[in-house]
């Protein structure tokens, strides 16, 4: 029995190890100062992913700024106010559905709603890309925050009410601080997820060949989009840089995840 379980575990971990090994090997070989500090004009030419790194951080940053406060507020509403009311259950249902929607559809929806002239007509750019990422991150933030808020013991809410705290005072002064480490952990995992997404950006950020600082209106670059471009064309420099891009994303995601785990391990409720 233990042998079967052991084999299953090896099978489960093996792909991850192979991927990591490949990325570290190939990505490490292609990683350079030039990769981090310059811009490629095409997969054929020399250069780097600076524009992609800027774009990914820019869009992920805006997406986090949008989705984390809204997500935590929504979760607070669900746990502290709505509980099992019909509205709260509806919100929970749609949050679950949103978690399962393929991310390319999210990109498509934002494209139809915000990008094209039939919608808001904003065109391609940083903001609409960030909006697509935020849409993917939001349900993750809501769900993880809801779990964390539910872990706050009811005793603490009762104690607070017994001291004459109003409901909002209990929420702000007791529940949210007690849940804070968990809320931060969930948010960081959502950021890690958003930073690694490519599909929702295809129809929103579109991609660019230079560093873009414009908030909206100019197509924005992204590490994932550049990787897709690099891997899909038969040019050695582009393929090498795509590996280095993969390594960059994995490092960013890993750092976020490790920090999240570290904060989670220190939480005391």
């Amino acid at each position: 029995m233990a042998g079967v379980l052991g084999a299953a575990m090896v099978l489960a971990v093996a792909p991850l190890v192979v991927i990591l090994w490949q990325v570290i090997l190939n990505g490490g070989a292609a990683m350079s100062w030039e990769f981090l500090s310059s811009v490629e004009s095409s997969p054929r030419d020399p250069g780097g992913y600076l524009h992609g790194i800027v774009g990914t951080l820019y869009m992920t940053g805006i997406a986090a700024t949008l989705s984390i406060p809204i997500g935590i507020l929504a979760a607070t509403y669900l746990v502290e106010y709505g509980r099992s009311g019909r509205f709260a259950n509806t919100v929970r249902f749609f949050t679950d559905v949103m978690t399962g929607v393929p991310s390319i559809f999210v990109g498509l929806a934002i494209y139809a709603l915000l990008v094209v002239s039939g919608g808001a007509g904003l065109g391609f750019g940083t903001f609409v890309g960030a909006a697509a990422l935020a849409t993917i991150m939001l349900p993750i933030v809501v769900r993880s925050s809801e779990e964390m808020l539910n872990l706050v013991p009811a005793d603490l809410r009762t104690a607070s009410a017994g001291l004459g705290a109003r409901r909002w005072q209990t929420t702000v002064k007791v529940v949210l601080p007690a849940a804070a480490p968990g809320l931060i952990t969930g948010s960081m995992l959502a950021i890690a997820r958003g930073a690694g997404e490519t599909a929702p950006l295809v129809l929103t950020a579109l991609g660019a060949r230079q560093v873009v600082t414009a908030f909206q209106g100019t197509p924005q670059a992204d590490i994932g989009l550049l990787m897709t471009d690099g891997f899909s064309q038969p040019f050695e420099p582009g393929i090498e840089r795509a590996w280095a891009g993969g390594l960059t994303l994995i490092i960013v995601t890993l750092l976020l995840t490790i920090t999240a785990r570290f904060i989670a391990a220190r939480r005391k409720v």
Binding site: A159, G162, L163, G164, A178, K268, V269
Partner: peptide, 20 residues
């Protein structure tokens, strides 16, 4: 009711200090 609870203290069966 909140004003009532402010004037009348309560202590519970299980000690329930805040994590502060």
């Amino acid at each position: 009711p909140v004003e009532v609870r402010r004037r009348i203290g309560m202590v519970f069966q299980k000690p329930n200090p805040f994590p502060k």
